[in-house]
Each structure stands twice: as C-alpha cells, then as structure tokens.
Computed example of a mutant assay.
Amino acid sequence: MGGWGEYAAAWAVFLASHMLPARPALRGPIVDVVGERAFLAAYSALSILILAWMIGAAGRAPFVPVWGWAWWQAWVVNVAMVAACLLAALGVAVPNPFSIAGARNDRYDPARPGVLALTRHPVLLALALWSGAHLLPNGDLAHVLLFGPFAAISLLGMRALDARRRRRWGTGRFDALLPRGPARLAPARLAAGLALWAALAASHAAVIGVPPWPLPP
C-alpha cells in the first residue's frame, strides 16, 4: 500500500472512536464519572485531532487524479462554509435529544427548539456541508475517499439517528418531541459561528497550504 498505510490507519482510528457515543452502554459509565459537559468537550477535542490527522494523511497519500480543479469550485466551499460554521456553532452542546451532540437534553422544549426548528441534526448537517463542498475542489483519490464518505455518513447518519430514536421511544414520543416552535437563534452563537468561519478562512493558507480565495485565470 505504500503511502496509503497512514491514511488507512487514520480512518480506522476515526471509525473506532465514533463507536463510543453511539453506544449508551459505553458512553454512560464515562459520563457518570466525568459529567456530560466534560465528556462532550473531551470527545470534541479528540474528534478534531483525529480529523486533522485524517486530512494530513490524505495530503500525504499518493496523488491519483479523479477530476480536475477549477477556481470557482473553491467559492462553492466559501459559501457552504458560512452555513456550516453557523450550524456547528448553533448546534453544539445545546439541548437536543435527537442528536449525539446534544447536552442537557432534559431542558429541551419542543416549543422553543432554537436551531432544531431548521434541522434536528445541525452538527451532522454542518459536517455534510463541509465535506460535500470540499469534495468538489479536491478531485484526487485520497480526498475523494475522505470527503465523499464523510458526506455520506453525515447524511445517512441523520436518518439512522431518527430511526433509532423512533424505535427506542416509540412513534408517539418521537412525534411529541418534534420541534414545533420558531427558529429563534442565539445571537452569541451566530457571532461565534461567523468568528469560526473568519478564523478558518484566515488560517487556511497557512495551515492547509491552499488559499481560500482563488481568482479566475
């Protein structure tokens, strides 16, 4: 496999790490010891580190072109990333019994759902936007194998989580918890999302090695 070995290892670690929050029997005892907030903070930090490793490993894998690059593809990413950053900021660690990223779920009120009025899975939708948009200007095999599965996992994960909750709760409770209020979005979280987007855009060239603002030839 040559240079593909590190990339395969990064994927293996990512998949193994994401088995934890999907299994209450594994997650529950840890949360009982450290608390929900500390668990989410530690798990989010670990996920970011693993994702950074995967991106780096994809860049170090052998380059096998699948489709070509055009300057306008990067602008699709720029637009999509604004929405992705806003959704991530609005959806992380908020009461959300539908999502594995929810926190303090006992405080969830269907009449005051916040971002859940737009989507029950804001973090997964943010990941789908990030990966789907980045797939377009990264047409080599390693990055197609990175961003393509991430987009698919994110989209299919939303359906899988809903199906799991419906089975566990029953249709009656599931329907009773569906958001029915307006999408009142926290200004502080909106500001945090825009700040996140600005920070990612400003650091992209230095960290990733590719400027996010290409101009037409």
Rank of each mutant, 00 (worst) to 15 (best):
L136I: 15
L87K: 06
G209E: 06
L51M: 15
L146K: 09
T171N: 12
I100G: 04
W11H: 11
A192M: 10
A84S: 15
D175L: 12
L177W: 05
W4M: 06
L15H: 05
R112E: 13
L20E: 10
P29K: 11
T119K: 01
H134K: 04
L156V: 10
A22V: 13
P21W: 09
F39Y: 15
A9G: 13
R173T: 12
L15P: 01
A152F: 14
V115I: 05
V66Q: 07
D106C: 00
P113E: 00
V77R: 05
F150K: 11
R37N: 09
I50C: 09
S203F: 11
A52R: 15
P29Y: 04
V115D: 00
G2I: 05
P24E: 12
G59A: 14
R60C: 01
A38N: 13
A191P: 11
A70E: 15
P216N: 04
A201L: 14
A57D: 07
G181A: 02
L141G: 10
P149S: 10
V207K: 11
A128H: 02
A22Y: 02
N78G: 08
G91E: 07
G170T: 12
G181L: 02
L136W: 11
A126R: 08
R120S: 06
W213I: 02
A22P: 03
P29G: 04
S47M: 07
F147Y: 14
A126T: 09
L215S: 14
L26E: 02
P212W: 00
S99Y: 05
R37I: 02
A42K: 05
Y7W: 14
A38S: 12
I48P: 08
I208W: 09
P21S: 06
W197V: 06
L125D: 06
V33G: 07
R165I: 04
H204C: 11
V33Y: 04
L146F: 12
P187Y: 00
G170K: 11
N105W: 01
R37W: 02
